[in-house]
């Protein structure tokens, strides 16, 4: 049993058109995913199969071929859009729309198009069976959420990042010193800046909580020769040098 009309082709064209509009006007992730994902995986492939009038004998076969043809269309689109310098979201939407529309038009004018295969009859699902399937989906989704949470929260290594850099804006008379904590608890540090062996600045009792970042911009005298600036991080708790970083101060 086949589909007696070309309604499926009309739906494909409308879908492709809607995707072009949505990609052009909104950044809504849900809407764009709902319309865009089938455009990559199914819609153009279905239209292509109908245009080629490839005979399929089951819904599974038709779906598999449609996905394959869609993927091939996407790959081809990458090269076409690259050649046209149009590898953009709009470029992709227009490409899939153009392929779908042209294929649908060709298919609509074919006289020898084979019928689409009939969908298999769905098995009857009782209420308790439906409830079990819903529970299964819930458990699997929940398990994934747990995996995401576990990955985000668990840290094997606990550490404090410490760095020194010349000023990012290219200003030669400044240094940036930063501390970021990925420890389990807040830590107290003393920071000392030394230029060519001479103390330049000292910061006492900097308390950095886990996840926090401290940065400071330190003015430094610029000389005719290159200087070496060093930042030392001390941990008063155990009274020892904890980290040491250095950079070069360029001459003027």
């Amino acid at each position: 049993m086949g589909i007696p009309s070309n309604r499926d082709l009309l739906v494909c064209c409308l879908w492709a058109g809607a995707t072009v509009v949505v990609v052009a006007v909104t950044d809504n992730l849900v809407l764009r995913t709902a319309l865009g994902a089938p455009m990559v995986f199914l819609v153009p492939g279905h239209a292509m199969l109908r245009a080629l009038s490839v005979r399929t004998t089951s819904a599974l076969e038709h779906l598999a071929y449609a996905v394959g043809a869609s993927l091939a269309t996407g790959v081809g689109g990458g090269f076409a859009l690259n050649a046209a310098g149009f590898l953009t979201p709009s470029g992709w939407a227009v490409w899939f729309w153009a392929v779908t529309t042209v294929a649908a038009l060709v298919a609509a004018h074919r006289r020898d198009a084979p019928d689409l295969p009939a969908w298999p009859a769905l098995a009857k699902v009782r209420l308790w069976q439906g409830a079990i399937i819903a529970l299964a989906v819930l458990v699997a989704t929940g398990a994934y959420a747990l995996a995401v949470r576990d990955e985000a929260t668990y840290r094997e290594f606990r550490y404090t990042e410490f760095w020194i850099l010349p000023s990012a804006d290219g200003e030669s008379g400044r240094l940036i010193v930063g501390i970021r904590s990925a420890e389990t608890q807040a830590e107290r540090f003393d920071l000392e800046i030394i230029v060519d062996g001479q103390p330049l600045a000292v910061f006492r009792s900097l308390t950095i909580a886990p996840g926090d970042t401290w940065t400071g911009q330190i003015p430094v005298p610029v000389l005719a020769v290159r200087q070496r600036a060093e930042a030392r991080l001390y941990r008063p708790a155990d009274n020892r040098l904890y980290r040491s970083v250095s950079t070069l101060v360029p001459p003027f």
Binding site: T19, L29, T33, G36, G77, P89, A93
Partner: peptide, 14 residues
């Protein structure tokens, strides 16, 4: 090929 398809999905869906 794979990167092209990934780009198509990223560009169309965000």
């Amino acid at each position: 090929g794979l990167e092209i398809l990934a780009m198509a999905i990223v560009n169309l869906t965000g």
